[in-house]
Design a protein around this nucleic acid. Structure first.
Lengths: 366, 366
DNA sequence: GTGAAAGCGCTAACAA
DNA sequence: TTGTTAGCGCTTTCAC
């Protein structure tokens, strides 16, 4: 931060005290109009920009909220920027065949939630500090963010529980997509069970499917709830209920090909492969296509989340869409509430979802 | 910011001075290993989180960069959150016909650039403060952000020039998508002229089109450069060059229907309507569809930017894709460079684009 | 290797 | 209405 003019400079130049300068900005009504105008114009003339650090320190509040996001799975396929990125415009401009790869990794679930957080923060007059686990030491980065804000929102599995608890002891914290573990955190989740139940019901009732596999990691509580909803629907219909989800260590996305090969080898291709997330469904579809298996003719595939990529791929992915922007807004709402009324009890809010029928379940578009 | 333990608390509890506590965190090598471990464990036990405000004030740097973004055009179509948003899961879950509306407004150009800024910030160990013009007083919000960060990135037309200059006098500032106006700002742009020239060439050479209209607002320097590239291509091909872009006060998006009606009324529907941006192209396509005009059979339409929505709509939009993530990364690269080596000369970097052929130009997919 | 002390720029009593 | 002043929590010489 280059040394810029401070309250002292403005005060001296305007011939007033620093308190008057401060008031001119924060408590305009407490300063005579003429004085205020004068101070403000001097400030403008000098290019005075109040230091948020100093204000935060003195006032005890930063006026900012924090969001600690996932690490993005992969980096761009563009070449690294820098000297190489500063290519001249004279080089030939490629005319590409179309590709959806750019939208496979963005926006994901977290990105849409983040957008909601941003919009609500700005609407409520807060600045937003975003952090991710780009660096080695997650805890250090988290502490860094936590030290900068009045309230914090985090995604699940991003941070060890005890670290989070410690932070929650100082500032309000909202954890998303994870049900309360009897902790000191606020929570915002969606109706995973219901969404998956209705989706599975659709496959059974409308498409008459009888055999199902559930594909995906079920470590997170969101995913586990979806598996539950899936099982409830099957049970209610009197169909056989798989005892376990199909998943492979190392992540389903990388193991999709293995899953498909296994299913083929065992002659056990079900009517539908219900996935815990859109990303897993997309990876599965790639593997299926690679194995020459047609979706939805040979097997139906469904996802959960409602990310943009599911709308872009062909066949388009049938899924359950989370109200991601609303989740982000709810998070901010809770945080500010706790800030405004200290001592509020912890909040847990569950938002509704909606089933979006597209092509991979066998429904024809239009 | 709830009162949490401070260096003083940790120091007292650990039986050392505050300097030692500070060193234990920032200059580990200056403290005896055993002392350091002890201090760190006390800190952890107490739930000590260093105050970024205090650090920023003392150290003169915040360790954060800022991004000041556009105002998003529209808000979500979901009902407002809050009491109403906290609906119970028991309510019926809608099974929707598919809709692309959610992806019409997100992610846009700025959102993808922001993602690049985020990724690069985190990779380089900086926190990111994002601000938008959600509130009435833009300048106040901007000053607020500026006071919190070591460097700032802004989108064009977001802020009055003189305000920006004043901030640039204190901290490095990068303006995107706007060529240098002999200012004190750094700039990151893309090859708008070249991209539009190649795209227009494609329409002429491959599709044999002869009559063209350029649709869109050309107030921004990005858009103006695109119009220029368009004209260059037509001129080089010996085709008539429109002297002005078709645009209506109030924004092309809202006026797309008027534009279409005018063109029809005058029997002047060209072979192709080349748009300055994807958003304008999308709005135009809606209007065209509403008027019963088929794209690309009756008229071709092209965009510029490469937003996700262009990939989602049918027919899919032919466009020029900007390397948005790279722009974001370049911005951060420049900022940190200036921070690390004060007195660096101002930088202007131009990035290459690529033409993406989809359906609206008449190219058949696959 | 550790401690004492002087700020960093601002806010908010309290005085005048 | 305006000025004086005591911190806010941390970093960083400079002594010890």
């Amino acid at each position: 931060m280059a040394k810029g003019p401070t309250v002292y400079d403005v005060a001296k130049r305007a011939g007033v005290s620093i308190a008057t300068v401060s008031f001119a900005f924060r408590r305009p009504e407490k300063v005579k109009a003429s004085t205020r105008e004068m101070v403000l114009s001097v400030a403008r003339e000098l290019g005075y920009v109040p230091s948020a650090s100093a204000r935060g320190l003195a006032h005890g509040r930063t006026g900012a909220l924090g969001l600690f996001a996932f690490e993005y799975l992969l980096e761009s396929t563009y070449p690294p920027v820098g000297a190489a990125g500063a290519r001249t415009p004279s080089e030939s401009i490629p005319i590409d065949a179309d590709s959806d790869e750019d939208f496979r990794l963005f926006p994901l679930y977290v990105d849409e939630v983040q957008r909601g957080v941003e919009l609500e923060c700005w609407r409520r007059g807060y600045a937003l500090m975003v952090g991710g686990r780009g660096h080695a030491n997650i805890e250090a980065v988290l502490a860094d963010i936590a030290g900068r804000v009045d309230g914090l929102a985090v995604f699940p599995h991003t941070i060890p529980d005890d670290v989070l608890q410690r932070i929650a002891w100082r500032i309000p914290v909202v954890e998303m997509s994870e049900t309360s573990r009897d902790d000191e955190l606020n929570h915002v989740t969606v109706d995973n069970v219901g969404g998956m139940r209705v989706l599975t019901d659709h496959l059974i009732k409308v498409h008459g499917m009888r055999t199902f596999a559930f594909v995906g990691d079920t470590a997170g509580s969101d995913q586990l709830a979806r598996f539950q909803g899936f099982k409830v629907a099957l049970g209610a219909a009197g169909l056989p209920v798989p005892s376990a989800a199909i998943a492979h260590p190392g992540g389903v996305i990388r193991q999709a090909a293995v899953i498909v090969r296994d299913a083929q080898a065992q002659g056990a291709m079900p009517d539908a492969m219900v996935c815990a997330t859109d990303q897993e469904a997309l990876a599965l579809m790639d593997a299926l296509a690679g194995a020459g298996i047609d979706v939805p003719r040979d097997v139906a595939v469904t996802g959960f989340d409602g990310i943009a990529a599911g709308r872009i791929v062909r066949p388009a992915l049938t899924t359950v869409r989370q109200p991601m922007e609303q989740m982000g807004r709810a998070v901010v709402d809770i945080l500010i509430d706790q800030l405004d009324r200290p001592g509020q009890p912890l909040t847990s809010r569950q938002l509704p979802v909606r089933v979006v029928l597209r092509e991979t379940c066998g429904c024809r578009p239009k």
